[in-house]
Simulated assay, not measured.
Amino acid sequence: MRRLVAAAAVLMGFAGPAAAADALSFQVDPAWPKPLPNNWLMGQAAGVAVDAQDNIWVVQRPKSLTEDERAAAADPPRTKCCKPAPPVLVFNQAGDLIKSWGGPGEGYNWPQNEHGIFVDHKGFVWLAGNGDTDGQILKFTADGKFVLQIGKQGPQTNSQDTSRLGRPAQVTVDPDTNEVYVADGYYNHRVIVFDGDSGAFKRMWGAYGKPPTDEKLAAYDPAAPLPQQFHNPVHCVQVARDGLVYVCDRTNNRIQVFRKDGAFVKEFIVEKATRQNGSVWELAIWPDEKETYLLNADGANNEVRTLSRESGATVGSFGRSGRMAGDFHWVHNLAVDSRGNVFTTEVDTAKRAQKFMFRGDMVLRKRAAAQ
């Protein structure tokens, strides 16, 4: 009876760190998602989010498909398959495509290169882009109706410019304040915050809470002191319920933690020896009451690891470099639903989304059976 209670506690997120280190087990669902309709094919999948109904939102790059992959869209068609899917794809838990939209339209600048998606507490969908002239984020309704653009396309400027962004990577919205936090980005070196309704600038900061600068940084060296500014790209930002803000300084292999006003709290170094593209590509916050863990997508080492949100210590991981279901090539983003299932997306040549089902009590059940 005690073992059953312990297993239930783990699934509900009430177990302590020692038990949870074993409990956060995941199993790939090789049948998710189901094949797309309309002869569509997904390109590089550059963002994933989960909404309040546990639907999964993916933003992908139709222009990243090769000529042979999109050959059915040629005029005349050169093969039977395939055609580019719309940029925004929405799946249910079973993997069915339930909605799709996106692309250029009236009143806004669609990104040159799609990068990052977030569904906020009001159901609005936010998109970013890291193309050469992308300096904007976009807000839409769930059905794809344009609502707001913050920033603009055009020549890049600098990290002091509050009228535009600099190839922004990702967006998150704080439900307590309706403020939009932007990981900015592939050109700029900052976190910048706007009002979610008006788009008005609120505040910004660089590494360690200092004013952001655009000083040229040396290539990452694990033996060298960490720089006092963010490297490119500033790749993700997440806001926890306790008010802490987590920022991915990808190439520097570090997560920096701030308060909402930009005051620096602490930092975690993750896989310090990683030189290729960095280890901290994306973070998601574990959905237990205390938000005990951070899930970290690492596109260089091609794994997803579980980190203690308190200490940054690695307590588990899954995945490896490869082409099979459950493997990764440039795992770029991840999101977690209310049940603990993890969804990942991959860029470069992988061009796919995957689902990893939470099997939290797997290890405990095996131990119980052995006893």
Rank of each mutant, 00 (worst) to 15 (best):
F146W: 11
A73K: 10
D120H: 08
V171H: 06
G278Q: 01
P222A: 07
L334D: 02
A325N: 10
G43Q: 03
R320S: 14
V237Q: 03
N301V: 07
T314E: 13
G102I: 04
R241K: 15
P84G: 09
P222C: 06
N39T: 06
F343I: 03
A128R: 02
R323W: 13
V28W: 04
W101H: 10
D288F: 07
D51N: 12
F268W: 12
V119T: 06
A73M: 11
D174I: 01
A52M: 11
F14S: 01
Q153K: 15
Q276K: 15
A31S: 15
P168H: 08
T274H: 02
N158S: 15
A18G: 01
S64C: 07
G131F: 05
K122P: 00
P62V: 01
E67T: 11
N130D: 14
P104F: 04
M362G: 03
K122L: 15
R2V: 11
P227M: 10
P211M: 09
Y108M: 07
W286V: 07
P155H: 05
L165G: 03
D51P: 09
G43W: 02
A21W: 05
P212D: 04
I269K: 11
K122A: 15
M204V: 04
Y220Q: 10
K272E: 14
Y186M: 08
E267S: 11
L127N: 00
K290Y: 02
V304K: 00
D214N: 13
A9K: 10
A52Y: 00
L138V: 02
K202T: 02
A200R: 12
L217V: 11
P17V: 06
K366N: 13
N341Y: 02
E267G: 00
A297P: 08
A169V: 05
T79C: 01
W110E: 12
D361W: 03
Q276T: 14
R190P: 00
N109H: 12
P84K: 08
G209Q: 02
W281I: 05
D348L: 15
T314F: 00
W330A: 11
D288H: 04
V342C: 02
R275F: 05
Y108L: 09
D214W: 06
K122Y: 07
R190L: 06
A19L: 11
G47E: 02
K83I: 14
N38L: 03
F146Y: 15
G47N: 03
V347P: 00
A200T: 14
A284N: 05
K351T: 05
A15M: 02
R275K: 15
P76D: 09
M362A: 15
A45Y: 00
D337P: 06
Q53G: 08
I192G: 01
R275L: 15
L334T: 00
K351Q: 15
A273R: 10
R254E: 04
H115E: 00
V48E: 00
W101E: 08
V171Q: 05
K355Q: 12
R259M: 07
A71G: 06
S311P: 10
W330E: 04
P77I: 09
P211G: 04
H332P: 02
G278I: 09
C248H: 03
L65K: 05
A353S: 08
G185K: 04
K290M: 09
N92R: 10
G243C: 11
N92Q: 08
P155K: 12
G185L: 07
F230W: 06
T177S: 12
V58F: 08
E282W: 11
G316E: 03
A350P: 05
L244Q: 13
